[in-house]
Design a protein around this nucleic acid. Sequence first.
DNA 1: ATGAAAGCGCTAACAA
DNA 2: TTGTTAGCGCTTTCAT
Lengths: 328, 328
Amino acid sequence: MDVARLAGVSQKTVSRVLNDEPYVSADVRRRVLDAAEQLGYRLNNAARALASGRTRSIGVVALGTALHGPASLLMGIERVARDTGYALRVVSTVEGDPTGVAGAVGSLLDQGVDGIVISEPIDDGPVPVKIDVPVLVLGAPPSFSAPLVLSVSVRAHDMARAATDHLLDLGHATVHHVAGPQRWFAAKDRLDGWRSALAARDAAEPPVFEGDWTPDSGYAAGRQLARTRGATAVFAANDDMAIGLIRALTETGLRVPEDVSVVGFDDVPVAAYVTPPLTTVRQPFDAVAGEGLSLLVHAIEKPGQALPATAGQPVDLIVRASTAPPRA
Amino acid sequence: MDVARLAGVSQKTVSRVLNDEPYVSADVRRRVLDAAEQLGYRLNNAARALASGRTRSIGVVALGTALHGPASLLMGIERVARDTGYALRVVSTVEGDPTGVAGAVGSLLDQGVDGIVISEPIDDGPVPVKIDVPVLVLGAPPSFSAPLVLSVSVRAHDMARAATDHLLDLGHATVHHVAGPQRWFAAKDRLDGWRSALAARDAAEPPVFEGDWTPDSGYAAGRQLARTRGATAVFAANDDMAIGLIRALTETGLRVPEDVSVVGFDDVPVAAYVTPPLTTVRQPFDAVAGEGLSLLVHAIEKPGQALPATAGQPVDLIVRASTAPPRA
DNA sequence: ATGAAAGCGCTAACAA
DNA sequence: TTGTTAGCGCTTTCAT
């Protein structure tokens, strides 16, 4: 190889230097580095992967959407992966794709990855793929056959519960829920949290409106809710739907929070600036991504070893002006 | 290789079948496919890349943000890449990273990619990296040394101009601008478009407020603008800032659109549901991603051949309730 | 502390 | 239509 020749050493020594392996004299190291620099040399990743059996990359199955939650999570994953020295390969599960998560995972396996992150998957049924690398599932129950399946939760259940409790604490008799699409685990978790909060107080459980995360669907729910007698508090499964909901209520002459209190979910950047500023709950995307990836990298690099304990994230309810006690 | 033995053919024939190459009899193809299926066999991508010199992957330099624009673009890119049979490797440029785009590109080159997409880059200065694959720049001027640099524009300039013209057409004497951070080409384009619209009508050019895309910065601009005499129309460089701006205006007793008209940029999902519904301009992210990637894939697969002509995207101004003629 | 040889699993080029 | 022979550029293993 050229670098080796230029530095007057063997190929193996170049490999040693470039991989920061021990047993290289400072002098040789310098010569090799200079030669590599001069030649603009970069290690060929395909060859390394072939020879070593490791790709130094992590595959992510993402949802093909620019929604705040999934997008934030993906960016968090990218950042941590890069920090830990792994490259990222991204595949997203498309709406109409019959192969769903299985297809996405298969594609990552074809590409060759050392680990896989499945980010906030939707419920697609079983994943009939033999996975031979560790898998990290973010925000949903693990349901794969793989040598090791890790899971880190965003604690959406607890957050939804806190949001509902907040409304109940304010004195509302019960809380309505505008849910997300129930094929999403994230949506299911929030609904469960809401439900358990109601159950704990023996509050009546009103019928659920199932939206699709868009403000449009929140708006539609709001139109319907405005016709519902005695609805004084609503918990929406994301901020976008909450905003659509508030608009519908406002248009029908109801005031927020005087007539109806609304809580959202996500704390999107505009949540503090809409009218009224939205009470919501903030998801610790970065923390979840960081914690999950550390686990995954650990599993990749030290297979078989016990995993480090993880902290668990706090629930972060942000009270703004869209919630108030019900009128007397 | 096992599959070859099981199917009773040579390794090369297996390769032929799995790559859909011609000159394989239907019978042999079946046997090979069956054997591969039975063994759960997948081609080793590292070995293919090493032997063929192609990775069948495209690298994306993304902005490490979940903002609507960049996130939408990334998802659009992913979709098209997958459709065209390329895997995606994503690196994002981090805020404080001194190596910026150059570092990100270097990392992709290390990984090995057949082409690179630089998505809405910020102005980082020159990129001192020898790139040896075609590069596609989305939404910014090409400024790299590479065998081929393609560029597809979102036409932010024209859109900003249309937004400003809309306000001017309504009868406003001039239009204020809340700009994005000027290190972003996207922000610069919008400012230029605004400026040229004003110049074309000989309208006075008020001082620019430079925000950072967040509603907070729009809010700050709004506080300042509320104190500005004669400000009746504002064009904000994105919807989030427009929403913050409207809040500040409203809090100081000004009404939108009666006292001040506001136009945003992006058409985020909630734009139609805030109060008042926001007049804005929609960026054709999917179309831009699709067009750009087709070009890039063409350049990768048919180097040297003339590129197909591209359509160019229409400007899509969406007039809602946040704009009106100035009061008499 | 350094080097030589073998081979990772494929595809390219050429035969047959 | 199928098979043979070489590598691709590294890392591994074993010497030295």
